[in-house]
Design a binder for these strands. Structure first.
Lengths: 220, 220
DNA sequence: GATACCATTTTGGGATACCAAACTGGTATC
DNA sequence: GATACCAGTTTGGTATCCCAAAATGGTATC
């Protein structure tokens, strides 16, 4: 793999994994020495990560994007629009291949919820669901939105009950899609995203002091 | 303005204005000499234009993205989802400021359709309509989708009647939004986008031979 | 005449050097 | 003690250089 993609990937991992906290300043020189690359690939990586919304310009320099509660709410509205459109499309398609994938996703929902991987599994559900639509743009929109939400979801305080409820909702949505019930699936998905947004924003708002104590910038 | 933004802007203009045809190869060296910039800003510009979908990698080099009919249809589905969501949001908001902008947009619809500027005006309508929602992500999605559609719309054969119908539809959509009729506006907008997509794809499909003759790559 | 092969050129990826602007820390002045 | 100012440092933006890989074109062989 080229150095450029390597720097980009590793830096993204560090940001998404909160190894570099929201609001921290980044210098090109630091990234250079941290990953043993020179400025050209570092520059390319930073430009890419900027378009993903993971970092943003801070005057002349770079900053890891702060957690922005207003932005999280807007993203929820955005992803609801595209996810619902995607799931309606999938219902309308009645694709043979899609049914098989849905069956597999239903099975994995029934499995014990993976204790360590709820974060990735929760994101992948929505991304894969969007992929089923066959529409590249709806898919990318959902994937990018989930990426932007990813760090905030790590910071959300979650109890067992909420996780169990989420898997149950995922199951119901898949069932509706399998049955070709577009309105039902759309409705279930909407409520799921609404609830998810409410819990996320509420949790972060309540814990804002604690997050700041960890050095994480959280803006209203 | 910095050299970097300058190269990006000028190159984008050339691509969107079809001064560099879809499918043409680009070399970093050519861009360098064409705009009198060095490789660093040229690369930054190319990376940005890649994320906008205006250019794409072609093995080791760069190619101005071909016109892709399947992609145009997918973009139409995507923009319908986000535009409808935006317009519903705007209706629900009942924002005072929005009403004023809507009045202004209605007025400009009633003006004689600007003979030379129908292309830009047609795009701006949808972009400004999305901006009214106040949701940055819906807005960006519409703006980016319209940018991706822009070149194809230049190539579409349009008659007077079709243009007049488009302005009338714009007018009706704005009226519905002003009246706060979310379902009506959503419905009108959906048909408008559907019709627009059909005419666009049909026109390009029929003229595919002529487009190839002009050196423009058009893929199915 | 077609094709396989090799030397040359071109090109994108990476590294480094340089510059101007912004930031920092300290000092001198009030 | 506070503040204005200045020198030194840091940093991002740009230009340039180097390199390996790919494209090119010509030649020799069959």
């Amino acid at each position: 793999m080229s150095q450029m993609q390597n720097v980009e990937k590793q830096l993204r991992e560090m940001i998404l994994g909160l190894e570099i906290g929201p609001g921290e300043r980044l210098t090109e020189r630091w990234v250079e020495s941290r990953f043993g690359a020179s400025r050209t690939p570092v520059r390319a990586a930073l430009l890419r990560l900027e378009t993903e919304g993971l970092i943003c310009r801070d005057g002349r320099g770079w900053t890891v994007s702060p957690i922005n509660l207003a932005e999280l709410e807007q993203i929820a509205v955005y992803r609801e629009a595209v996810e619902v459109a995607a799931v309606r499309l999938t219902c309308a398609l009645q694709d043979r291949g899609a049914v098989e994938i849905i069956e597999a996703m239903l099975d994995s929902c029934d499995d014990q919820t993976p204790r360590e991987e709820w974060h990735r599994v929760g994101m992948d559900f929505h991304i894969e669901l969007a992929r089923l639509s066959g529409n590249e743009f709806l898919f990318r929109a959902v994937r990018d939105a989930m990426t932007r939400l990813s760090r905030a979801r790590w910071l959300e305080v979650r109890d067992e009950a909420a996780l169990g409820r989420a898997w149950a909702e995922h199951h119901d949505i898949l069932s509706a899609v399998r049955a070709g019930d577009a309105d039902g699936a759309a409705c279930l998905l909407s409520s799921h995203i609404d609830g998810s947004r409410d819990r996320l924003v509420t949790s972060l708002r309540n814990d804002r002091r604690g997050l700041r104590a960890r050095g994480f910038a959280v803006v209203a």
